[in-house]
Design a binder for these strands. Structure first.
Lengths: 213, 213, 213, 213
DNA sequence: TATGAATGAGGCTTCATTCAT
DNA sequence: GATGAATGAAGCCTCATTCAT
């Protein structure tokens, strides 16, 4: 998904070679951080995984932190695209459930994402903030639109922001609890989806109580 | 707050002296991690803050990690007690709102807690897991009781566990967003409370839509 | 001052282009070393200042040291010419004072010189030795001529060489003490000149004690 | 002269062991800098010469530079004591000649000194400045006293400072020219002494021309 | 039990030089 | 000849842990 760099290393000109090396480092960093976490992602480990010399690293990044801070925003975008592609045109509530499910699908497609996301707050604060702002503002927009369409009542803009943080926190904690496993990332159980659906459908959207579901 | 160890250092027997030293290290670690985070909490820094030699540390803890892993569960208990003491006998829904508010009160009383909690996942995974299990199981019990009392319908035990993770995630993300500030921990805005109340009252509990609040 | 290379870059043939590039590197090195010192004069910095690629450097110089060793002798020649032009036809003693003053004038005209000279001993020893030999031998010749003319008595050739080193050391230490300032090179105070004049006029030349000055 | 640490390593208490280690590092640094210069005096080289681990270095010095900056002032004091001990009670002029000779004797006793002194300006500027101030102020005091005693006329305090720099520069340049040799530091030739004596006796002091020496 | 100096592995970064284009 | 990415050695420093006193 994320990259398609594995192609044959045919003839590349200077510029392409340059970009290709940077890309290799990037991918190596994604793998290393995904597997060992930021703290263990030393430049030595990353460059070794990328198959380049340690010095090469500094031809492409100012320093270690700069790379780490770029990791999350980049993959975060991939996530946004992924989720958007999986969101249909059903009711606002149902769309939110789709997004929720798509999130868990995404972390299975890009298993490194979870760790890169979760640890970023402490090891790549700049990148984390950027990502959070990205997601948060897009999410608030979605909720507003739903309100305009009459699918949500009774929530102010400020309350939306709080709700968005609840939803992001939910994804984070649920994914930690239900997606990790010894070897890889697993699908999320059905009852997690249903719990989320009930809470949101009744608590946020206008569908609801009596004839719910 | 957490402990009251500052008493006069009168005559102490050997066992007491021992416990007292360990306690000093513990408190120093709490302060240091709360202020600088786990990553910056070197043994040197902690022992200096505790006023003991570096070597002394290893008379009381197997290694650095062991101490770090004990930090969160211990303060976590303080939190549980604090919140329990602030929870009244109103309706289940109202009690949940009280707990929510009490959480934010607690992190203002023990400002180190937020950092110790948030970073623990990555720097003290064992301690983090223990804390999460503590909280999660207690929380599920509360919800079950509410269901028995008829305040909640239509959620299975498994769904409760998911809901609990949503609620914990919510606290985590909301506290990061609204409680941190340049100098210390601030109160959470009213609209955060109200958003949480609406979501939970309507989405989880049987109170609700028409005559809400 | 040193060179006048800024002319229009009109059509140049191969040889000229070649010389022109080398010249650019040379001037860049002078500026960089003058401003940051030899230690900070990395090939990267020099080539960047020269507006050429790093690899280009090695088409014109065997290695970094070779360039550094050429720096001082080259500017040293400029200095010799400058001082010679400022030396009149007065008495030998007065000529020496003129040279002394001209030295301080020169380091104001070419502010890079001081640093290039002073640091050269350790960062460009070959170049330094060459410069010292240049100056020293020329200086000894001057003193000999003065002795022949009767302006100096009682000093052997070997003693002249020692005296010349005293004079060079004097310039070096005095310039360090009195010419440097936060922003740039400043004029030397009058009392420095007068002290030098007294010492030399009485101590080296036959003018002298009673009716001196 | 400088140190007498080679004694038997009998029983030492903690404090003594500590000081002894620091002393070992100090001596190793002196040797290394004296032999290879500051630039080549890496922490690795110094600690190896001292027979301790690299990490030990940082138990005794904040960083590499701190040690380097202490080198010159410390040995500089040794020099001052050495020279003072060799200065008799003869006339002011003769005392100065004694000091001059004693300087060259000292650099033969402590061959590392020359390099430590000369390079300090660029590699240990703080230490260099300190040393220069030490020497310079002591020297000016000596000249003033001579003036008070009538041995010098016609020089102002400001001029004294300039003269002192001339004398320090003289020692520096003369030692470089005449004391270095492939293997070690050699005695300074007699004609250097005599040239210095003539210049100073006639140029600075009141003895002089006719019945000089 | 308390002390604190010693250890040494390992991390980040710089930089002169090489070399394929 | 010009380019500039790649190389890898080497440097400084941190820090958890050990151990003799």
């Amino acid at each position: 998904m994320t990259q398609a760099t594995s192609a044959k290393v045919t003839k590349l000109n200077r510029v392409e070679r340059n970009a290709w090396t940077k890309q290799k480092i990037f991918e190596a960093a994604t793998k290393v951080v995904g597997k060992y976490g930021y703290a263990e992602a030393s430049v030595a480990r990353i460059t070794e995984a990328a198959g380049v010399a340690q010095g090469t690293f500094y031809n492409h990044f100012e320093n270690r932190q700069e790379l780490l801070d770029q990791l999350l925003p980049k993959i975060g975008l991939d996530m946004v695209h992924f989720i958007r592609a999986r969101t249909g045109t059903a009711s606002a509530a149902r769309q939110e459930i789709e997004r929720f499910g798509a999130f868990f699908d995404f972390i299975r497609e890009v298993p490194e994402f979870l760790r890169i996301l979760n640890e970023a707050e402490f090891f790549a604060p700049a990148g984390y903030q950027k990502h959070l702002d990205n997601i948060s503002s897009a999410y608030v927009r979605i909720l507003r639109r739903a309100r305009t369409a009459g699918a949500i009542k009774d929530f102010s803009d400020e309350e939306f922001e709080a709700i968005v943080h609840v939803l992001m926190g939910a994804r984070s904690y649920l994914s930690r609890r239900y997606s990790y496993s010894k070897d890889g990332v697993t699908a999320v159980p059905e009852h997690v989806i249903s719990a989320y659906r009930k809470l949101l459908t009744r608590g946020l959207f206008n569908e609801g109580s009596p004839h719910e579901r």
